[in-house]
Simulated assay, not measured.
Amino acid sequence: MALKIGDLVPDFKAKTQSGEKFEISNHIGKPLVIYFYPKDNTPGCTTQACSFRDQYQDFQDLGAEVIGVSGDTIESHDKFANKHNLPFILLSDEKRKLRSLFGVPTHFFGLIPGRVTYIIDKEGKVVSVYNSIKANAHIEHALEIVKEM
């Protein structure tokens, strides 16, 4: 079942691009922008990640943290983050457990993992779900919602 506005973000753990443990419970208390994307180093996903990178300080100035999630390996995320100087957390979801937990849909008959951004408030409640294959649109939407919080 897909997360919707008003739901609490589910409790989860994952590994970051540097192999460190990530627990969502340690990040509740500040706004979170959690974006799911299909794959490292593809044109749309690279554009999206670099756009979040370019606006990252704006999110930080608003007290928000950006977290990217895809099914790529920790090693792939590490190379992707280093290649593009990504300052935010990338979580590895190789078994698609997080996608399932959040209810992120797939596109093109289940062949391509979906692109969805969730905005979570300080209390851990979902305040926005943005589902669009347009990579660039996610950053503008997320920043607008975080500014309103």
Rank of each mutant, 00 (worst) to 15 (best):
Q60R: 14
P87C: 05
S25P: 00
E94F: 00
K39C: 03
K97F: 00
V9T: 11
Q55N: 13
G19V: 14
K95I: 01
F36I: 13
Q60D: 08
C45Y: 12
V104S: 04
N82E: 07
S25V: 15
P31M: 02
T16Y: 04
L90F: 15
S76N: 12
Q48W: 11
A81Q: 09
S76C: 07
D93V: 09
S18W: 14
Y37R: 00
K15W: 08
D11M: 03
G29D: 00
K21H: 08
T42D: 03
P10M: 00
L90T: 03
H107T: 09
L90E: 02
P31F: 00
L86F: 13
H27P: 07
D40M: 11
F88M: 03
A49I: 08
P38K: 11
L101G: 03
I67E: 09
K79C: 00
S92E: 05
Q55K: 13
A64Q: 13
G63F: 06
Q48E: 15
F22G: 02
V9F: 02
G6N: 12
G63T: 07
S18G: 11
L8M: 13
I5D: 02
C50E: 08
C45S: 15
P105W: 01
P38A: 08
Q55Y: 14
K13E: 09
V33L: 06
F59L: 06
T16W: 08
N41M: 15
F12H: 12
T46H: 06
N85W: 12
K95D: 15
N41Y: 11
S70V: 10
N82W: 04
E23L: 09
F102W: 00
K79I: 10
F102H: 07
L91I: 09
P105C: 11
F52L: 11
T73S: 15
D58I: 02
I34T: 04
K97I: 03
D54N: 15
S25Q: 14
G6E: 05
S100N: 12
F88I: 02
P38T: 06
S92D: 03
Y35M: 03
V66Q: 03
H27A: 01
A49T: 08
E23H: 13
I24K: 06
I5V: 15
C45K: 14
K21R: 08
D7L: 07
P105A: 05
G19I: 12
I5P: 05
D7G: 04
K21I: 11
V69C: 10
E75G: 02
A14T: 02
T16K: 14
K79R: 13
P38E: 01
E23K: 12
S25I: 15
K39L: 10
H77T: 08
Q48D: 13
K30W: 10
F108M: 06
Q17L: 05
E23S: 14
L98I: 03
F36W: 10
D93P: 06
I34E: 06
L8V: 06
P105I: 09
F22K: 02
Q17M: 07
Y37G: 01
T42R: 05
S70G: 09
P87S: 05
G71M: 02
F52S: 09
K97Q: 04
T16A: 07
L86W: 10
Y37A: 01
L62K: 14
V9A: 12
T106K: 14
F52W: 10
P10K: 02
H84D: 03
S92T: 10
V66N: 11
C50Y: 02
I28H: 03
D72V: 12
V9S: 01
G71H: 08
N82T: 10
H27K: 13
K21L: 12
C50V: 14
S76A: 15
Q60W: 01
